[in-house]
Amino acid sequence: QVLVIRIKIPNSGAVDWTVHSGPQLLFRDVLDVIGQVLPEATTTAFEYEDEDGDRITVRSDEEMKAMLSYYYSTVMEQQVNGQLIEPLQIFPRAC
């Protein structure tokens, strides 16, 4: 299952990153890619938005798994409803 992660860049749009092994993705892998997209920032975590629009911070593989399972459940709903699949949007955080 292909996963598209949209890395939101403060004040300048976003970069889409296509991942072919989504469920095996590790927290460190995401930080590495964010580091390539935002080389001047030191990113130690990132956030995503849940169904209520609240930002949830991801700082570990466990939290990463929770984010992915949340995302895959929303994708299934979108597929069932015949909607366009939205990329998983993440917001890098420099701490």
Rank of each mutant, 00 (worst) to 15 (best):
residue 29 D to K: 06
residue 16 D to T: 06
residue 10 P to H: 05
residue 24 Q to S: 09
residue 42 T to I: 10
residue 79 Q to C: 08
residue 8 K to T: 10
residue 9 I to C: 14
residue 90 I to L: 05
residue 55 R to D: 01
residue 56 I to K: 07
residue 17 W to N: 00
residue 82 G to I: 03
residue 34 I to L: 12
residue 23 P to N: 15
residue 2 V to T: 13
residue 38 L to W: 15
residue 80 V to H: 11
residue 21 S to N: 15
residue 32 D to N: 13
residue 64 M to H: 06
residue 23 P to F: 09
residue 85 I to F: 06
residue 16 D to M: 00
residue 33 V to M: 15
residue 1 Q to T: 10
residue 36 Q to C: 06
residue 71 Y to T: 02
residue 49 E to C: 07
residue 79 Q to W: 05
residue 27 F to P: 00
residue 10 P to Q: 05
residue 92 P to Q: 02
residue 52 D to S: 13
residue 92 P to M: 00
residue 39 P to E: 03
residue 82 G to K: 10
residue 68 L to Q: 02
residue 92 P to A: 02
residue 60 S to E: 01
residue 10 P to I: 02
residue 26 L to E: 12
residue 79 Q to G: 09
residue 20 H to K: 15
residue 33 V to T: 07
residue 90 I to P: 02
residue 64 M to W: 04
residue 12 S to G: 15
residue 26 L to F: 11
residue 93 R to Q: 14
residue 93 R to E: 07
residue 80 V to N: 13
residue 50 D to S: 10
residue 45 A to C: 13
residue 87 P to N: 03
residue 69 S to T: 12
residue 13 G to C: 07
residue 56 I to H: 12
residue 10 P to V: 03
residue 83 Q to D: 14
residue 55 R to E: 00
residue 1 Q to L: 06
residue 82 G to F: 06
residue 71 Y to K: 00
residue 6 R to Y: 03
residue 48 Y to Q: 04
residue 16 D to C: 07
residue 89 Q to E: 14
residue 64 M to V: 14
residue 26 L to W: 05
residue 23 P to D: 14
residue 44 T to Y: 06
residue 30 V to E: 08
residue 63 E to N: 06
residue 13 G to V: 11
residue 42 T to S: 12
residue 77 E to S: 12
residue 34 I to P: 10
residue 77 E to M: 13
residue 56 I to E: 03
residue 64 M to I: 06
residue 93 R to K: 07
residue 68 L to V: 06
residue 20 H to C: 06
residue 93 R to A: 13
residue 44 T to H: 07
residue 39 P to A: 04
residue 26 L to V: 11
residue 40 E to L: 06
residue 3 L to K: 02
residue 94 A to Y: 11
residue 27 F to K: 05
residue 69 S to D: 15
residue 35 G to P: 04
residue 75 V to E: 05
residue 91 F to S: 03
residue 3 L to E: 02
residue 66 A to T: 15
residue 45 A to S: 13
residue 1 Q to D: 10
residue 66 A to R: 10
residue 16 D to I: 05
residue 67 M to R: 01
residue 58 V to I: 05
residue 65 K to I: 05
residue 10 P to A: 06
residue 54 D to R: 12
residue 6 R to M: 03
residue 11 N to E: 11
residue 21 S to F: 07
residue 59 R to A: 11
residue 75 V to A: 12
residue 76 M to P: 10
residue 21 S to Y: 05
residue 47 E to Q: 03
residue 85 I to K: 12
residue 33 V to F: 11
residue 8 K to A: 08
residue 40 E to F: 09
residue 12 S to N: 15
residue 88 L to D: 00
residue 68 L to T: 03
residue 74 T to C: 09
residue 7 I to C: 01
residue 72 Y to T: 10
residue 22 G to C: 07
residue 15 V to D: 02
residue 52 D to Y: 09
residue 11 N to F: 04
residue 28 R to M: 07
residue 62 E to K: 10
residue 43 T to D: 08
residue 6 R to L: 01
residue 63 E to K: 02
residue 25 L to W: 01
residue 54 D to N: 12
residue 83 Q to T: 11
residue 76 M to E: 15
residue 11 N to D: 12
residue 6 R to G: 03
residue 49 E to T: 06
residue 28 R to K: 14
residue 39 P to F: 06
residue 12 S to L: 11
residue 91 F to I: 06
residue 83 Q to E: 11
residue 47 E to F: 03
residue 26 L to Q: 14
residue 47 E to A: 05
residue 47 E to D: 11
residue 95 C to W: 08
residue 51 E to F: 07
residue 70 Y to E: 07
residue 18 T to F: 00
residue 87 P to R: 00
residue 25 L to S: 05
residue 61 D to M: 02
residue 89 Q to Y: 07
residue 5 I to L: 14
residue 44 T to P: 08
residue 51 E to M: 13
residue 80 V to G: 11
residue 38 L to R: 04
residue 88 L to V: 03
residue 41 A to H: 15
residue 37 V to M: 10
residue 81 N to F: 09
residue 6 R to C: 03
residue 33 V to C: 11
residue 95 C to K: 07
residue 71 Y to M: 01
residue 7 I to F: 04
residue 64 M to N: 04
residue 17 W to Y: 07
residue 11 N to V: 03
residue 18 T to E: 08
residue 24 Q to E: 12
residue 31 L to K: 05
residue 60 S to D: 12
residue 35 G to H: 11
residue 71 Y to P: 02
residue 91 F to W: 12
residue 79 Q to M: 08
residue 46 F to A: 00
residue 13 G to D: 15
residue 9 I to D: 05
residue 8 K to H: 13
residue 57 T to W: 08
residue 33 V to P: 04
residue 62 E to C: 13
residue 67 M to W: 03
residue 66 A to F: 08
residue 87 P to L: 04
residue 19 V to A: 06
residue 18 T to C: 03
residue 23 P to G: 10
residue 74 T to W: 10
residue 37 V to H: 15
residue 51 E to R: 12
residue 6 R to A: 01
residue 70 Y to L: 08
residue 6 R to Q: 05
residue 34 I to W: 00
residue 66 A to V: 13
residue 41 A to G: 14
residue 3 L to G: 01
residue 62 E to G: 10
residue 53 G to F: 02
residue 31 L to D: 03
residue 81 N to K: 11
residue 50 D to H: 15
residue 35 G to I: 07
residue 3 L to W: 08
residue 46 F to E: 02
residue 75 V to M: 11
residue 11 N to A: 08
residue 39 P to T: 04
residue 76 M to I: 12
residue 37 V to S: 05
residue 23 P to Q: 12
residue 12 S to F: 11
residue 18 T to W: 03
residue 4 V to K: 15
residue 59 R to W: 13
residue 41 A to E: 10
residue 30 V to T: 01
residue 28 R to H: 13
residue 27 F to N: 04
residue 52 D to F: 10
residue 63 E to G: 10
residue 9 I to Q: 05
residue 17 W to L: 06
residue 73 S to L: 06
residue 85 I to S: 08
residue 74 T to E: 07
residue 61 D to R: 00
residue 55 R to A: 02
residue 42 T to L: 09
residue 43 T to L: 09
residue 55 R to F: 06
residue 43 T to K: 04
residue 62 E to N: 10
residue 41 A to C: 05
residue 57 T to H: 05
residue 92 P to I: 03
residue 58 V to K: 01
residue 19 V to E: 01
residue 52 D to C: 14
residue 49 E to A: 06
residue 85 I to V: 15
residue 86 E to M: 11
residue 67 M to P: 04
residue 30 V to H: 00
residue 4 V to P: 06
residue 32 D to R: 07
residue 80 V to Y: 11
